[in-house]
Design a protein around this nucleic acid. Structure first.
Lengths: 221, 221
DNA sequence: TAAGCATATTAAGTCAACTTAATTTCAGAA
DNA sequence: TTCTGAAATTAAGTTGACTTAATATGCTTA
């Protein structure tokens, strides 16, 4: 059963919406994929016909086990590729997303296995997103937003949610990347800036940036 | 200007036909691409509209400069990928073709440049096919068929034309791969088998196999 | 130079994936 | 409980890439 790129993309988007806790409604999907909602309705019917989703009209979609499996496979491809591009091909972390997005649909099982091996079976990609295992288990993901973490406690940067290249370049410049030790010095009230200490330097970052950064207690990257 | 995978494939096939000396006629193209000739006629019209080929009805097609440039780019992708898969990803030379065939349409300029650099700007792929340079120059290709070469003269295996995986595995097993020294000991008459000497061993190969192997005078791989 | 045949094109239709515009459904407010 | 606006679906149409079947072209050869 070979699926079109389009089908794979829809499944991926539905997976992401579900895992964010948002419902995979027609309009949500349409917005994320940048297509009309009529297109989504059509596709949801096809996906339901392929038994990849459950879809009742005017309600959202949910992945079936079969659909889930495919979504995880694509996500695995994507995240393995991101790490691969960074670690082996010398890409910077703000460049990997777009390239991975194209390649994820076209690599073979063999290619997937080879890069997983070359990378020593990694669990997280360069942004800290977990890489599903081959049999569809999703590793743990850093879930404590920096903006919410305790002052004066040492954490490790676990994950950066926003993947906008410019944003990533900024974070790299100030030294906030997954794996780095971080301590919150002070949080200004009313969603004000957050002062943090990294290794040695202190930095001040805006609240909306702090919201995109998730921490872990111990090193899990 | 982004072209569809299909358009790229047609251009590649037309290029290959032209470079083999065969005319790129509707039926030739149809056979190589495994589509109906009606499909080809349609596509040739589109390609002509895009100024990628010249096409006069009932005559064949020829690439324009623009079309030639794109064909060479795809061919460069393909051959770089083949070598990359073999040298860096640990594929065997009978496995690289299919994977490269899929990926060649989806890698970015940046990816192309990175692998070219990693491979130290190679001129030939694992089968001995020349890799076009970035600015569209095609390196020399071994052109002397083993079946036609002189007896008792030492050559180097330059290129293997047929890329059928089973055939390639056979050649590898008996030790005939590009770069290897080879001397013809005896050629049986009436297109009979050819006896050759490689490094130390002697081997006998059938005529139709010998026809697929091209030699060079000095090492150019 | 006309006939016959291989080659190529046109005609008509399919399928996937998209669009806009019109219509239906549903859930919450009056 | 009916109304209304947002969300979703249906209707109708487009484009790319393919198909088979019917038709046209032009080259060879009698």
């Amino acid at each position: 059963m070979t699926l079109s790129q389009s089908v794979e993309d829809y499944l991926k988007v539905i997976y992401v919406l579900e895992s964010e806790g948002s419902a995979a409604t027609t309009n949500n999907i349409a917005e994320m994929m940048d297509v009309s909602s009529a297109s989504v309705t059509n596709m949801l019917k096809r996906l339901a016909g392929l038994n990849l989703i459950e879809h009742k009209s005017y309600k959202g979609a949910t992945l079936t086990d079969a659909g889930n499996k495919i979504a995880l496979e694509i996500l695995r491809h994507h995240r393995l590729l991101e790490l691969y591009l960074k670690e082996i091909m010398g890409y910077s972390w703000d460049e990997v997303h777009d390239e991975a997005e194209k390649l994820e649909h076209h690599i073979s099982e063999q290619f997937e296995d080879k890069i997983a091996e070359l990378l020593n079976h990694p669990t997280h990609d360069p942004h800290g997103d977990p890489i599903p295992t081959k049999d569809g288990v999703m590793p743990e993901m850093a879930s404590l937003p920096l903006a919410v973490a305790n002052v004066d406690e040492q954490y490790i940067v676990g994950r950066v949610k926003d993947q906008d290249p410019e944003f990533l370049r900024y974070l790299e410049k100030i030294g906030i990347i997954p794996g780095v030790k971080i301590t919150i010095i002070e949080k200004a009230p009313f969603n004000g800036p957050v002062q943090v200490k990294l290794e040695d330097e202190e930095k001040t970052i805006g609240f909306s940036i702090a919201e995109q950064i998730y921490l872990v207690e111990q090193k899990m990257i």
